[in-house]
């Protein structure tokens, strides 16, 4: 079963991001929204994607722009709140990590 992990807090402030990555299985995807967008350049996320190149990491572009956050590596996919609905239906279930 593919899970969508929705991260809504900064991984620099707590270990929720690390905990989420611990629960990650193949076919899962990650979505950064709200303060989760502060993770667009987080080492743990970049490392996770290096280890599993097929891992899809999305972020809500509007939320990132509002916070002056740019995904420098450009390996994460910008998306919109509207498209999150589609994303949810592409997965079997989801967890919100906030």
């Amino acid at each position: 079963m593919a899970m969508l992990h929705i991260i809504r807090s900064s991984g620099y402030n707590n270990n929720v991001l690390a905990q989420c990555l611990n629960m990650l299985l193949p076919n899962d995807s990650i979505l950064l929204m709200d303060d989760g967008c502060y993770n667009v350049n987080h080492k743990l996320l970049l490392k996770a994607q290096l280890a599993a190149p097929e891992l899809k990491i999305y972020f809500i572009e509007q939320h990132a722009t509002a916070r002056a956050q740019k995904n420098t590596a450009q390996t994460f996919s910008p998306t919109t709140l509207t498209d999150v609905v589609t994303l949810l239906f592409q997965h079997d279930n989801s967890i919100t990590w906030s």
Partner: peptide, 17 residues
């Protein structure tokens, strides 16, 4: 183990954290 734990979690339809 971490992996079995995660797999068991994935088998559920709705997850509240």
């Amino acid at each position: 183990s971490n992996k079995d734990f995660s797999q068991r979690l994935h088998q559920h339809n709705v997850i509240f954290r």
